[in-house]
């Protein structure tokens, strides 16, 4: 791995970790578990488009691992992994089919997958199948937040100045 790429990936990881930690400090927007902007996903999206699947996975895995260490709950690790993994799978399978102009679609699909993963984990952990009733609300929120983060990722990727700096 070239030093430059390594440095860039390390920067991206650090960036997503900072975003993740700051977002974790914010009070929840609505009293529904699992609803958040998911800003850290912007970085994962940028990474997969700029470098590829493997690199994006590394950034994501490191962010989840280190994020758990910094925000400090073992249980949230399970939610992060189940949501993050499902979202990553969707991203890895579909990102070749969508160019950067359609990135917002991928972002929404990832957010939906993320929330489905989390609700599945929540049902498995709490054994309360009624939690599935949070799904409609989570879907709506996934579409809105997914579009939001997707548009930001698009803006960044399509900005020539930022791209030149990254490459």
């Amino acid at each position: 791995m070239k030093t430059k790429k390594l440095t860039a990936l390390a920067m991206l990881t650090a960036l997503s970790l900072i975003i993740f930690i700051i977002e974790a400090q914010l009070p929840p927007l609505v009293p529904i578990p699992g609803i958040k902007l998911g800003l850290a996903n912007i970085v994962t999206l940028i990474t997969i488009y700029m470098y590829g699947r493997k690199e994006a996975f590394c950034v994501l895995a490191l962010r989840i691992g280190l994020g758990t260490v910094f925000t400090g709950h073992m249980l949230s690790l399970i939610y992060s992994i189940s949501g993050g993994l499902l979202s990553y799978i969707v991203m890895a399978l579909l990102f070749k089919l969508f160019d950067t102009k359609r990135l917002w679609v991928i972002s929404i699909l990832c957010a939906i997958a993320h929330n489905i993963g989390q609700i599945t984990a929540a049902v498995a952990i709490t054994h309360v199948p009624e939690l599935i009733w949070y799904l409609p609300a989570l879907m709506i929120s996934a579409i809105i937040t997914g579009a939001f983060t997707g548009v930001i990722a698009m803006l960044i990727l399509n900005n020539r100045n930022i791209r030149r700096y990254m490459e």
């Binding site: 578990p33 709950h73 249980l75 949230s76 952990i125 709490t126 309360v128 939690l131």
Partner: peptide, 10 residues
């Protein structure tokens, strides 16, 4: 309508 849930405390 919706259950109350505290995920950190299961």
């Amino acid at each position: 309508e919706l259950p109350i849930v505290c995920l950190p405390h299961k």
